[in-house]
Simulated scan of single mutants.
Amino acid sequence: MTGTARTAPRDWLVDGSLAPHVDETPPGALYRAAERGELALPFCLSCRLPLEPEQRICDGCGGNAVSWEPVPLRGTVHTATLVHRLEPGLVRASAPYPVLDVELDSGHRLIMTTLNPATAAPAVGETVTIGFRTVGGVRIPAAVPAAAHSETTEDRP
C-alpha cells in the first residue's frame, strides 16, 4: 500500500468530536485497554472492591491504591431507557436509541449504548456481552444484547 491513510470508522450514534480524551489519568486506562479488545477497570488493591473509573479512594476500606485489571466481557442490564433526542451535528441517530446501565460480572457498573443501532432497549435482567464502538478513533465499551450476539461483538473498519 502506498501512502493511503486509514480513517476511523464512523460511529452509528455520535459525532467523532464527542470522543473521550485519552491521557494518563485513570480513565485513560479504560480506553487504552479497549484498543487491545479488553475491558480494564479499577479495583482497590487492599480489599479488591470494584471501583468507579475516576475513583481514587475505596468506599470499603479507605485505601488509595488502585489496580486496573481486565474483567470479563459480560454483564446484565440493570436499567435501560430509550432516548428520544435529535441533535444534528452531534447525535447521528435519527430514531430513538438505547442507553443502558450494565452491571458487569466483575461487580462494576457502566453506562453505555449498544454496539449497533437498536430501536428498542434490551430488557432489564438481560445478559449482554461487551464489544467496542469507535468514536473519533477511540474505542469505547458497548453492549451486545444476547439476541444480537450471533451477529458481531466488535466493530470493523
Results as ranks from 00 to 15, higher is better:
Glu103Asn: 12
Leu45Gln: 12
Thr7Tyr: 13
Ser150Gln: 04
Val77Leu: 04
Pro122Glu: 02
Arg74Thr: 08
Gly63Ser: 04
Leu49Thr: 09
His149Leu: 14
Val77Lys: 00
Pro96Asn: 11
Pro70Gly: 09
Glu151Lys: 10
Trp68Ile: 10
Tyr31Ala: 01
Pro20Gly: 10
Pro122Lys: 10
Val99Gln: 06
Leu82Asn: 04
Arg6Gln: 09
His21Asp: 02
Arg133Thr: 08
Ala93Thr: 10
Ala80Asp: 01
Leu73Gln: 00
Pro26Ile: 09
Pro145Glu: 00
Pro72Asp: 07
Arg156Met: 12
Pro20Met: 08
Arg36Asn: 12
Pro145Thr: 01
Gly37Arg: 02
Glu35Ala: 15
Ala121Thr: 10
Pro96Tyr: 07
Ala8Ile: 05
Ala65Leu: 04
Pro26Arg: 08
Val14Asn: 03
Arg10Tyr: 05
Pro72Cys: 07
Gly37Tyr: 00
Val71Thr: 01
Val22Ser: 06
Asn64Gly: 15
His21Val: 15
Ile111Arg: 15
Glu87Thr: 11
Ala121Gly: 05
Ile111Phe: 13
Ala8Asp: 06
Glu103Ser: 10
Ala65Gln: 12
Thr152Pro: 03
Met1Val: 03
Ser46Glu: 15
Asp155Glu: 14
Thr127Glu: 04
Ser17Met: 12
Pro122Gln: 07
Thr76Ser: 11
Ser17Val: 10
Gly75Lys: 02
Ala143Leu: 11
Leu100Gln: 06
Arg156Ile: 13
Ala5His: 12
Gly28Gln: 12
Met112Cys: 15
Val99Cys: 04
Val135Gln: 00
Pro96Lys: 09
Thr7Pro: 04
Gly89Arg: 10
Pro20Phe: 15
Pro72Asn: 02
Arg156Trp: 14
Leu100Asp: 01
Ala147Phe: 06
Ala40Arg: 03
Leu51Gly: 10
Gly37Cys: 07
Glu103Met: 13
Pro72Gln: 08
Pro122His: 01
Thr113Arg: 02
Thr114Glu: 05
Ser106Phe: 04
Val22Thr: 03
Leu51His: 07
Val138Asn: 03
Ala8Pro: 11
Pro70Cys: 06
Val144Ile: 14
Ile57Leu: 13
Glu54Pro: 07
Arg74Lys: 15
Leu45Arg: 13
Gly125Phe: 09
Leu104Gly: 11
Thr152Ile: 11
Pro88Asp: 10
Pro9Glu: 02
Cys47Tyr: 01
Ala120His: 10
Ala93Cys: 09
Pro72Ser: 11
Leu30Pro: 03
Val135Phe: 01
His21Ile: 14
Arg10Glu: 15
Ala95Glu: 15
Ala29Leu: 12
Trp68Pro: 06
Leu41Asp: 02
Asp105Gly: 07
Arg109Glu: 06
Thr4Trp: 10
Ala80Gln: 02
Glu52Phe: 12
Pro117Phe: 07
Ala142Trp: 04
Pro98Met: 06
